[in-house]
Computed example of a mutant assay.
Amino acid sequence: MVPTVNDDAQSASARTFRQLGDLLYASDDYETTYTVVCHAATTLITGCDRASLMLRRGEEWTTPAATDEIAAAVDRYERVSGSGPCVDAIEEEVPQLAPDLHDPDAPWPELRSLLLAETPIRGMLGFRIAHHGRKVAALNLFSDRPGGFTDEGVNQAAILAAFTSVALQASAEHHQVITLREGLASNREIGKAIGLLMAYHRISDDAAFEILRTTSNQLNSKLATVAGQVVAGHRNQVST
């Protein structure tokens, strides 16, 4: 069977999703991840010419990533006006669709007029992305063609938003586990160092901890680092 153009497109999309997943699960740099998601949108979503990602943490709104200045500018317009596909997707928790800004029944009349007059954007979509902690985000998608977002593109956007939400949550949990393990390892080293100092100087655990704390401050070094040096020094003495 000879592969069709559609088969090739699906294969390319599958590869892009795999690459995106690898990055989302492995990266601890969320700003880089946001940027990759925005650029992936222009590859994975039919009709998408540019994209941005808006983030809300508490009452603070930011745009940590955008494919270009036009997409970033739309987010600024949204934050000033308090409405638009990204803002409404976050606030209302449902997808926001305006595939043709020329449609008089399309939402956000002031924003639509501004974009039609000052940008090449002719269609917009907004999809909420769940994030960890108090953060919540939305993916803003833009087409430079009226009606450029078909039902196929809307479905692709929904899949990308859901995929990104799941991957970001998994990535956050993964890094929380790593942080916890590192914390436990540090605490074990500190405990060992306190025990060694207590035995060597015949002092209480509070006094041993105070020695570690004072040394840490004097050396401008982390407590766990000083503890590790104490333990390593003891090992060297024992082995010689």
Rank of each mutant, 00 (worst) to 15 (best):
M1K: 09
P3H: 09
A12I: 08
A12V: 07
S13D: 14
A14R: 12
T16L: 15
Q19G: 10
D22K: 13
L24S: 03
A26S: 15
D29W: 04
Y30N: 02
E31Y: 05
E31I: 11
Y34N: 03
V37I: 15
V37W: 01
V37Y: 00
C38I: 02
C38L: 06
H39S: 12
T42M: 07
T43F: 06
L44E: 01
T46H: 10
D49M: 03
R50C: 05
L53P: 00
R56M: 07
R56K: 14
E59C: 05
W61E: 05
T62D: 08
T62L: 13
T62V: 09
T62H: 07
P64M: 11
A66S: 14
D68E: 03
Y77C: 10
R79I: 12
S81Q: 14
G84C: 07
G84M: 05
V87F: 15
D88G: 01
E91S: 08
P95M: 11
P99K: 08
D100S: 11
D100M: 09
L101P: 00
D103I: 08
D103E: 13
D103M: 11
A106C: 05
E110R: 09
S113E: 14
P120D: 09
I121P: 00
G123W: 01
G123R: 03
L125C: 05
L139K: 06
L141C: 07
S143Q: 05
S143T: 10
D144S: 13
G148W: 02
G148Q: 08
E152N: 06
E152Q: 13
G153F: 01
N155D: 15
N155K: 10
Q156I: 06
L160F: 06
A162T: 11
T164S: 13
A167Q: 10
A170E: 12
A172R: 07
E173W: 09
H175D: 08
L180H: 10
R181K: 10
E182I: 04
E182G: 02
E182Q: 15
E182H: 13
L184W: 04
A185G: 00
R188D: 13
I190H: 04
L197K: 02
Y200T: 12
Y200I: 10
R202L: 12
R202S: 14
S204V: 03
D205C: 09
D206L: 14
A208I: 04
E210S: 14
I211F: 10
T215L: 12
Q218S: 11
S221A: 15
T225V: 09
A227W: 02
A227H: 02
A227E: 04
G233H: 12
G233F: 08
R235Q: 14
S239E: 15
T240S: 13
